[in-house]
């Protein structure tokens, strides 16, 4: 167990190191001179020199990279190339908003998907199973921003039940916070619910074929109690994996949903930075998202080890 955790942690550090080099290379080396990117090709040489000196891009690239990385390790995200604002407070503020709607969305998705998927599995040869299976198949194909747009139209604009967009921090006004957070969370969660339902369904069907479940039924369990006592823990392993993968996907999906509901999260900050060609900001925001994605994958791998004892000793057991 301990070797496996150390192995996973080593992989985490290595992945982040390689990813940070890749982000820096793609955003700061490949596009050419950051000063030209910021000021345009018609800028005078004096203006370019001044910009380079002001933003420290006249230093060797390796120094710039180490400076950026050293800052990140101390939670210092640098200064925006365009607005000159300190990125640290901005990113830390925005990331909370994104994590809140992603977390709420996933919670909603699980609350729907686990019962629905189990139901679809138990009845997978009857009409009910087919209906749930078909509905989840359609749900997977619907983009989350389409759900968002339709929610805005019907729930916010027509029915006027909830605001169409904006954000109120939970500490400021909890009631208003919920009113603003529900629709983005539903938009993110609906599609995820469809995806996870499919995985829960096939995981439970898989478990229902296992010998130990037949034994449990032979020893007097009903199908439901056999599933609850013996099946669901085993079905949990593949489901935990997909939840992790989807959580990482939702962070990115939130970029689009935040746009629909004008939610000031990390995603809208990223899109603004891209539109302003603020490469320093893009670099730090992307790295924040990558750290979150990699951290989620790390936790999934750990949980996997806990849930499936067979993985506790081996090093390379992955299929």
């Amino acid at each position: 167990m301990r070797t496996r955790v150390a192995w996973l942690a080593g992989q985490l550090v290595l992945t982040l190191a390689v990813a940070s080099v890749a982000v820096f290379w793609v955003l700061r080396v490949l596009p050419g001179d950051s000063a030209v990117v910021a000021l345009g090709v018609n800028a005078t040489p004096e203006a370019l020199d001044q910009w380079r000196a002001a933003h420290g891009t006249d230093r060797p690239l390796i120094v710039q990279y180490l400076d950026w990385m050293g800052g990140l390790l101390h939670a210092d995200f640098g200064t925006s190339f365009v607005t000159g604002r300190d990125l640290t407070a901005l990113i830390l503020d925005r990331v909370q908003v994104t994590l809140i709607i992603v977390g709420l969305g996933m919670l909603l998705a699980l609350l729907v998907a686990i019962p629905l998927g189990t139901l679809a599995a138990v009845h997978h040869r009857s009409a009910w199973g087919t209906v749930i299976g078909g509905a989840s198949q359609v749900g997977v194909a619907v983009p989350n921003f389409l759900v968002g747009v339709l929610l805005v139209s019907f729930v916010a604009v027509r029915a006027r039940w909830l605001p169409a967009g904006g954000w109120v921090p939970p500490i400021l006004d909890p009631a208003e916070f919920w009113r603003h957070a529900i629709l983005p969370a539903v938009a993110l969660g609906t599609v995820q619910a469809a995806i996870i339902t499919r995985y829960v369904r096939s995981a439970v069907i898989e478990v229902m074929r296992e010998d130990f479940l037949r034994t449990a039924r032979a020893s007097g369990h009903t199908r439901t109690t056999a599933l609850v006592h013996h099946g669901l823990r085993n079905a949990g392993v593949p489901v935990v994996t997909v939840v992790g993968v989807q959580l990482a996907g939702m962070l990115v999906g939130a970029i689009v949903v935040e746009r629909v509901f004008v939610v000031p999260g990390l995603g809208s900050l990223l899109v603004d930075a891209v539109n302003q060609r603020d490469l320093q900001a893009v670099q730090s925001i992307v790295m924040t998202l990558v750290v979150l994605v990699v951290a989620i994958n790390f936790v999934v791998d750990l949980l996997y080890t806990v849930l499936d004892p067979r993985l506790r000793t081996g090093r390379e057991v992955r299929a």
């Binding site: 992945t15 793609v26 970029i255 891209v274 994605v293």
Partner: peptide
Amino acid sequence: DVLLAFPGLLLAIVFGAAFGA
């Protein structure tokens, strides 16, 4: 595996920032 740290949409946004969308 390192590429897995960059979901497709995020990679596309990064490339858009670097090379123009």
